[in-house]
Simulated scan of single mutants.
Amino acid sequence: MKILYFAWLRQRTGTPTETIELPDGVTTVAGLMAHLGERHPAFAEAVGAGGIVRCAVNQRHVDRDHPVANGDEVAFFPPVTGG
């Protein structure tokens, strides 16, 4: 699974992109966000501030209950991103 971080989320995670294997039991965007928050505590803080972090799966905007699978491209970004 390819994870992309945009705008200030890139600084919070320390990387613009990473590739991971989806852990057992993680089946939704919300579960993935929780897993990534364990890896990147500053990402967890951003996610915890409800509504600040948006998500796209395979270049489609989705809600946090959307399913995810290995092979997906998942992007996280704030509501407004610049250049």
Rank of each mutant, 00 (worst) to 15 (best):
P16R: 01
I20H: 00
W8H: 15
R54H: 14
A34M: 10
R12M: 14
T81H: 07
T28G: 08
L9C: 11
V62T: 11
G83W: 13
V62C: 03
K2N: 14
N70D: 15
A75C: 08
A7M: 07
L4C: 09
T17K: 05
V47S: 06
D24A: 14
L4T: 10
A75Q: 12
H66P: 07
E45Q: 11
D72T: 06
V29I: 13
C55D: 09
T19H: 02
V80P: 15
I3M: 05
F6P: 03
G83T: 13
W8G: 06
E38P: 10
G31W: 06
G31L: 09
V26F: 03
A56F: 01
D24F: 01
G25Y: 01
H40W: 11
A7W: 08
H35N: 11
T19C: 01
V29E: 08
H61I: 14
M33C: 13
A44G: 02
C55A: 15
L36I: 12
M1V: 12
G71W: 04
G37I: 09
L9G: 08
V74F: 02
V47F: 12
A30N: 10
C55N: 09
E21T: 14
G50A: 07
E45C: 00
A46F: 09
T19A: 05
N58G: 04
T27C: 02
Y5W: 10
T28V: 07
F43Y: 08
H40K: 05
F76D: 12
P23K: 01
E38G: 14
A44S: 08
L9R: 08
E38Y: 06
A7V: 03
P16F: 00
A49V: 09
R10I: 04
V29Y: 08
P67G: 01
A30Q: 15
A69V: 01
V74D: 06
R60T: 14
G82D: 14
V62H: 04
R54Q: 14
V57A: 08
D24N: 08
G82E: 14
Q59L: 10
A34G: 11
G83L: 12
V62Y: 05
M1R: 09
W8N: 15
G48A: 02
T19S: 10
I20Q: 00
T27W: 00
E45R: 07
